[in-house]
């Protein structure tokens, strides 16, 4: 089945060149051909794996505690303005 690589890349927010669309398209098609072997398994009565070892829902006390220092975190931002991370305009003027 042909994959609309441009559409998938749009969902994944990755810009692709024409060459990448062609190359990744062929490689993804090949992989999907290989994973077709899973169709030979009878999984009608099988539950999907949710976890592989014993684990329970984890709750913690809703208590305040120290977090990372704001300046340390903001220092990593590609662009900042004061105490904020600066991003391109999201809402049109």
């Amino acid at each position: 089945m042909p994959i609309d690589v441009r559409y998938v890349a749009k969902l994944a927010r990755i810009e692709l060149t024409d060459e990448e669309v062609e190359r990744f398209g062929a490689q993804l098609a090949e992989l999907l051909e290989h994973v077709k072997t899973l169709n030979s398994l009878d999984v009608a009565a099988v539950a999907a794996t949710a976890q592989v070892v014993e684990s329970r829902n984890v709750m913690r006390d809703d208590a305040p505690r120290a977090s990372l220092d704001r300046e340390t975190v903001l220092e990593q931002a590609p662009q900042r303005q004061g105490a904020f991370v600066r991003v391109p305009r999201i809402i049109a003027e």
């Binding site: 994973v35 899973l38 169709n39 398994l41 999984v43 099988v46 539950a47 999907a48 794996t49 949710a50 592989v52």
Partner: peptide, 11 residues
């Protein structure tokens, strides 16, 4: 989902 079911069989 099919892969997660196969995973159950492997486990």
């Amino acid at each position: 989902v099919r892969a997660q079911k196969a995973r159950t069989l492997i486990a």
